[in-house]
Design a protein around this nucleic acid. Structure first.
Lengths: 227, 227, 227, 227
DNA sequence: GATGAATGAGGTTTCATTCAT
DNA sequence: GATGAATGAAACCTCATTCAT
């Protein structure tokens, strides 16, 4: 639950524009080559600093990665917050959510690429646990809170569990993000739909996903009779 | 679309039980350490063959990985086929699908771990493209075909696109698989639901997901009036 | 023979308590990690001064080490002087010497640890030569002088060479010091005696060592016959 | 007590002359630069093998060092065994011991240099403990056993403890070894005696040390009176 | 077919020292 | 006097792949 700081004090003292530049360059490298293939010597060189200074800022390659990840995740979080704390009905919120995911995915595809990479990490369970916590705790609680309220307003089918509802909803959004940003999932989208997602009609995707969530199947006959 | 063969002829001549043993051992290594950290020399040692022979079977580490991946993917495909080609209504098929995903995830978690890893691969776009094709083409076409039929039977809301419907459905199932099998997504499930997925009530998850897909939101008043 | 000064003038101008604090902290680091693994940046940080200032005081890490070493060696020298310049017979002096070594070893184990390290230094023969001279010249001359006097008083077996006698005596005392203070030699003591030296009966060790040396002083059979 | 093996199986398969060559070259490097400054890439290059193969033989630099150390220690052990198991009286054995130490020190000075280095190691207490055990256990037990027998034969003053006697005796021999082989202690010998130990009259040193120890064996005045 | 010894480029991390302020 | 950001060479260790037998 404690939010750790994965960089050293020296990095705090760097002015913001250099800080951001460094992180963006690191994110470029991580997003294009993956964690293991990324080379911190190259990151340092591209950022115009010595490798020694790099290690004055970040104790390990891991820490640099996590800092990049959190930097990226923060950007989306703010937009999500704004949406979820509004007074709209859940359906409207969901639409806004999807729109934000779409535009964010285009703008910040590299950040999502990092997030995607974390999801594939093996064999470092303690680090993984920390990272999940850092990333998912806030996001999940915003979702769950909002959805719980929606239940009180009878915006949602009563026999659904708010937590699982939030989970399924985020699953759909996450996979949509990956489809916009990660090589494999972009190809997969192409195979499913026949369309390159970059050239897809975004409005169509949004409306289709909204309908899918809203009511994928038509109400069953039995239920209708009972109305 | 061409189905490549990522091993050498010599591997064809090995008898099946040794073939499977070798692949299972390789899958163990890949699933527990990830592709880059897996060590092909150790795989050979664990499998009881020399590294030289390993290279008589597979030209590169990549090829070994892909062969493992396809080996694992084939197992699920058969079950899916059986379900999708049945005469059930889509809702019933979907339930069967989810059940299969759940049980498969427990039994074959390592195979899914490999699949998950592929989704995070960077910077090898041609290889990635080939792998997506190998894996997703068959699966997606089964989904789409089935769902298109369901549309004809009016089992599905008419204003949904079958391809996107298939895509969204598979997204939900894929994320459920990951939640059963991959470190990160297991933790994420715990954070969303408060439950360790291994100790979760599977029937509850199945029924909730089914409801979510079936009709996440209650039918709106307007729509009801128009019935 | 010239007593060098291994620090810069700026260090002379620092007041004594800060000087001592700095040296004690450096000694801590050197004694716990060894010269090569000790980190001069960390020493500066622990001492509360900047690394820049550190280099205003000491030209190199080597110089800092030597200054620490001499600082530590000085402390024992004074006690030895007092003993050796007294009027006691050699046997009494030797007992006092051993007692002093024991208590000093407990109190100043870190200084001895530095001394022990110097004995293992390789490949810097000129520096080594200088350091031996700095450390051993005074000590050896006190020993030799005292023992030469003892020879005149017939306190010592006549057919022994005073210089070698002093050398052997100091060897025994040095190894006893190491046994009290250095990881390896502490373990070695345990293996030889079955006792952890910290829990050993100090009086027993003293009396045994004294007896071991003492008989060296008593006349031999032949000499006895000639009395 | 278990004697570990600090090299990998692959090293066992190397033929003896190459094994010895490799170890001698590594010992050269360690003895001349010390453990930390020694460079295994250089050792590999000098030995005419690749660094990769080096790591097929030894898991770590540490392991290579320990293997070198044990290789060197074994050589002296055999000579000591022969002497100590003979039927000579302790005084004769001791003389042989000193002679062996002297000649061994000249021949194998590098091995002793390694041993000396271990005695100065800091902060790796578990590794240190293992190494002490490996090296000192056998040697100390041979000493103690022999000396205990000598006590039964009344070769030694009765009020001395055999374990401490062995300990003091080995201390003198160890320091003599260092004086022959280690930079610092060679200089120290020069300062004490005024003689470069390489040009010293070895017979004189031997006889002086023997006398220094010897009197320890003769009975004390009191005891003489009681005869 | 089968072996496994051998390669060596490549990547992370450390730290004594400098120098502009 | 005092600071501490910045440097960058240097060292350990990994592992996919080759090839002589």
């Amino acid at each position: 639950m404690t939010q750790h700081k994965y960089y050293k004090d020296a990095f705090d003292r760097v002015d913001d524009s250099r800080k951001n530049k460094l992180l963006e360059i690191a994110i470029d490298e991580f997003a294009s080559k993956g964690f293991k293939n990324a080379n911190i010597n190259i990151i340092a060189k591209n950022a115009g600093i010595s490798i020694g200074l790099m290690y004055k800022y970040f104790a390990t390659k891991d820490d640099l990665f996590i800092t990049c990840l959190k930097y990226g995740m923060t950007k989306l979080e703010h937009s999500l917050n704004d949406i979820m704390l509004s007074d709209d009905r859940l359906l409207v919120k969901t639409e806004k959510l999807i729109r934000t995911i779409c535009s964010h995915s285009k703008k910040y595809s590299k950040y999502i690429s990092l997030y995607n990479e974390v999801g594939a990490e093996k064999g470092t369970s303690e680090r993984t646990r920390l990272m999940v916590e850092e990333i998912e705790t806030k996001r999940s609680s915003i979702y769950i809170e909002t959805i719980t309220k929606a239940f009180e307003n009878k915006d949602v089918r009563a026999d659904l569990d708010p937590k699982l509802f939030a989970f399924f909803l985020d699953n759909l959004l996450t996979m949509l993000q990956f489809s916009y940003t990660c090589d494999y999932y972009r190809e997969r989208f192409l195979i499913y739909t026949g369309i390159d997602i970059d050239e897809a009609d975004e409005e169509m995707i949004i409306s289709q996903l909204l309908k899918f969530i809203e009511s994928a199947f038509t109400v069953s006959h039995e239920e209708l009779k009972n109305l």
